[in-house]
Amino acid sequence: MPASLLPSRRQVLLSGAALVTAPAFAASPVALSALDDFAIVRSSGRWWLVGELLAAHPGGGTIELRGLHAFGPGAAAPRLLTLTPAELQAAGALPRGKPLERAALAGGESATLYLWHALTGDDSPPPALRLELATDAGTAALDVAVQPPIALRPPLRGGPWVAVYDPAFPFGHRRSAFERDGRRFIPARFAIDWIRLDERGRAAPDSEQARFDRWHGLGHEVLAVADATVVAVRNDRDDVLDAPRPATRWSPEDVAGNYVCLEAGAGRFVFYEHLLRGSVSVAAGQSVKAGQVIALVGRSGVNSSGPHLHFHVAAGPSLLHAQGRPWGLGGFRVLGSYTSMDEAESGRPWRPVDAAAESRSALPPPNAVLQFPA
């Protein structure tokens, strides 16, 4: 996905991120709406609420955000989530990605609250939620639908592979929005960049980290994650193995480089990006089986790191203008973890954990080191 010119190694391009303001409700101090359906995903043995809550203050003065609560459906539903003002501030962003300086909205101001927070309990997630945003001027409420995750097979073999992503990173995949016809899309809401490591945590041999042609992941087989139909492919973009980014001008649509899009049913489209030039072995309209080799890992398009596989699921076949959808994998083993994306790419050893397999389909934890079946 896009790499921005903002000063961070892992930042991605924010394009057309102007906030879509929700209509004002006379009885509420703040108008609430949702950018898209919410999702509840399984990860790290817990359920996580993911979605974007749009909050607009149509009146005058400043209102203080006192907390956010999420409830299951029904009048007597238990409270599943409580966020403090500090957590709301950390989750919030003004138009064009400017972070909230405090948990407050000035008159006429609007913000997006990027939620990715653990729910209480271990019960199966409800199909809908009620969100209540408390302020010093009263409480506003919104009912939201919940999208279920799709269960998939691993997109790669063996390992170790590190699942590089951070839901809280202000300019990462999670918050990169693209606009068309007055709508905002976050296609990579649940995206992961998969980087192959060696047993010491290095993406390339010692002294070879800057040589992208020496990275361990380059040329590894990429697999279909479900029985699916190929919707689109691109196979003719060069791999950038001698520089951080292409020397020629590029547009957001060029960032993915070579890619494959699979339609996996139920309105889910699976994207594989940055594939090795000439390695795509499937064509649009072709049927594929889960586990089938469809391409090789490359470094085409625009990257902020070395050869890796960008992977996400969306609600449509567009690279940039389709909402990201939740997914989970089965069968992987967690070997260890890193505390951040930068640490995951540092070449240092990971912190080991008991190599237990996930017992059910789950989204791999952020910056976890995994082993897939061979």
Rank of each mutant, 00 (worst) to 15 (best):
G278I: 08
K289D: 05
P246W: 09
P252S: 04
P246K: 10
L275R: 03
P252G: 02
N258A: 08
V282H: 06
R249D: 14
A283F: 12
Y272C: 01
S279P: 08
P244I: 11
V255M: 09
L276K: 14
N258F: 09
F271Q: 10
T248M: 12
A283Q: 10
Y272Q: 03
A264H: 07
V288D: 10
S279D: 03
Q292T: 03
V280T: 05
S279R: 01
A266G: 14
V260W: 07
A247D: 14
V270Y: 07
A266I: 08
L276W: 10
D242R: 13
A266Q: 13
Q292M: 15
A243C: 06
L275F: 04
L262Q: 05
F271H: 14
G265C: 07
L241F: 08
G267Q: 04
G257L: 15
A283I: 05
L275W: 08
A266H: 14
F271D: 00
V280E: 01
L276C: 02
W250S: 13
F269C: 01
P246M: 12
P244Q: 06
S251T: 14
A264L: 11
F269D: 01
S251D: 04
G278D: 03
A264S: 15
R249N: 07
V260N: 01
G257I: 09
V270P: 00
V280H: 06
E263M: 05
G267D: 04
W250T: 15
R245A: 13
H274E: 00
S287W: 06
A290N: 08
W250V: 10
G291M: 10
G265H: 08
S279A: 02
L262R: 09
A283N: 10
G278W: 03
W250K: 09
A266L: 09
L241Y: 12
Y272K: 04
N258P: 00
A266S: 12
S287K: 12
P252W: 13
V260C: 00
R249E: 15
G257W: 08
K289W: 09
A247M: 11
A266K: 15
Q286K: 12
L241T: 07
A290Y: 14
A290F: 08
H274K: 06
Y272L: 03
P252V: 09
V280K: 04
G267Y: 04
E263G: 12
V288C: 12
P244G: 09
L275Y: 07
P244R: 11
G265M: 08
S281A: 11
V282L: 02
R249S: 08
E273M: 13
A247H: 09
T248W: 15
E253F: 04
Y259M: 04
S287P: 07
L275A: 02
S281C: 02
Q286L: 02
V270N: 02
F271I: 03
Q286R: 13
V255D: 13
V280G: 07
P246C: 10
A247Y: 03
A243P: 06
A290P: 05
G278H: 06
V288G: 03
